[in-house]
Simulated assay, not measured.
Amino acid sequence: MSADARVSPAPVGLSRRARHFVEVHGLHVPGPDIRPFRDVWLGHGVPAVEIERAVAFQDRWGGIALPPALAYEGGPRVLAPDVPEGSSEEGWLIPAGDGRVSMAYGFMIGPGGEFGIHAGRWTPLHADTDGWVESLALAHHASRWAKTITKVTGDAVEAVALEALEGYEPVPEVQGITDTWWRGDDSLIALYRGEAVCLDAPQCQEAHIYGGLDNWGLRGG
């Protein structure tokens, strides 16, 4: 692997755990600069402010390829913006990168910078892309170091959610909206509800429960 392909340094503002994840496991993939398309997009009615949002996303995350997520069919193959898409009901959404497989939904950046999925319905997963990346880093660490891993799907997730709300505290760095992470004394719970909400398919919700973790995995700094 070429040293030039490494992501170093990682975008500022991430936790220590997420910086390590991006710099060690992420790659920079060459891609087109969207700035030359500005005039064309303006001519097609895309507001200038939305183009600037797409450019800002490109400058922070564009071309970064991360290991597959444990949900959402792995997530975007490479984080890369494309022409913003508008609707009167949901505002403007910016494509965040193509999926790794053919999918029923796309990965988008929402009007307020949220990271989420869209399939006729906009469903924000995290408050921004940093939160999505933090969740990937947390899942990577937890799946490697947990002594036990339990996966729950469908209606059974509701009981897990109640346990998390009562006995755990939210993991703030993932900035969860539809998807959330919760931590206990030596365990983590990831609640993935985005597909269930976006596709109106309750059977798609999942909970991943990681037990026997060290403190660094729980609090990544």
Results as ranks from 00 to 15, higher is better:
residue 149 I to Y: 03
residue 51 I to P: 02
residue 129 T to S: 12
residue 209 I to V: 07
residue 7 V to E: 02
residue 104 A to E: 15
residue 18 A to H: 06
residue 145 W to Y: 01
residue 211 G to D: 13
residue 174 V to S: 00
residue 86 G to I: 05
residue 88 S to E: 10
residue 73 E to M: 06
residue 196 A to S: 06
residue 190 A to E: 08
residue 103 M to C: 08
residue 33 D to V: 02
residue 116 G to S: 04
residue 28 H to P: 00
residue 126 H to D: 11
residue 87 S to L: 05
residue 107 F to N: 03
residue 93 L to G: 09
residue 144 R to T: 08
residue 188 L to W: 01
residue 165 L to E: 10
residue 195 E to D: 15
residue 172 P to I: 00
residue 101 V to Y: 15
residue 141 H to S: 02
residue 48 A to M: 10
residue 144 R to A: 09
residue 134 E to P: 01
residue 46 V to W: 10
residue 55 V to R: 14
residue 82 D to Q: 12
residue 127 A to R: 15
residue 10 A to V: 03
residue 179 D to F: 05
residue 36 P to G: 08
residue 123 T to W: 01
residue 156 A to Y: 03
residue 195 E to M: 11
residue 97 G to N: 04
residue 55 V to K: 13
residue 29 V to T: 06
residue 4 D to N: 12
residue 141 H to F: 09
residue 152 V to E: 07
residue 119 A to F: 12
residue 182 W to G: 06
residue 72 Y to R: 04
residue 6 R to M: 13
residue 123 T to L: 02
residue 28 H to F: 11
residue 91 G to S: 10
residue 201 A to S: 03
residue 156 A to C: 04
residue 63 G to M: 12
residue 158 E to F: 04
residue 62 G to N: 13
residue 6 R to S: 11
residue 115 F to M: 05
residue 34 I to F: 11
residue 216 W to D: 12
residue 196 A to V: 04
residue 89 E to M: 11
residue 183 R to C: 07
residue 104 A to I: 03
residue 26 G to C: 04
residue 91 G to R: 15
